[in-house]
Amino acid sequence: MAIYLLCLSFFSVGLYGILRKRNIIKIIIGVIIAEYAVNLFFILIAYRIEGRAPIYSPNAEITNMVDALPQAVVLTSIVIGLATTVILIALAMRIFEKYGTFDITKIRDLRG
C-alpha cells in the first residue's frame, strides 16, 4: 500500500507544478510528470508477486503471468501522451514567438 502512496505523491508533484509554476515550459513538464504517474499507477496495479512478463516461451509452461490488459492500455496512453505534449509545445512556441516570454503573468499584462 505504501507504494501506491508514493505513486500518488509523484502525481501530486506534477499537480503542484501545473498549479504553482508561472513558466509555460514548467507547466508542460508538470503535465508530463502527472501523465507518467498515471501510467505507473496502471502498471503497479497490474503487477503480481513473482509474476512473469506476458510473453509465452516455447520451452517452459508459464502460469503466473502479470495482468496484460493494463499494459496494453498504457501502451496506447503513452503515444496519446506524446501527441498531447507535442501540441502543447507547439502552442508554447507560438506564444513565445508572439510575446517574447514564457511567463504567463506577463502574457496577461501584454494582452492589454
Partner: peptide
C-alpha cells in the same frame, strides 16, 4: 514542422 519553424520572438 518544428525544425522548419523559424523560432524567435517577434
Amino acid at each position: 514542422a518544428f525544425v522548419l519553424l523559424k523560432y524567435e520572438p517577434e
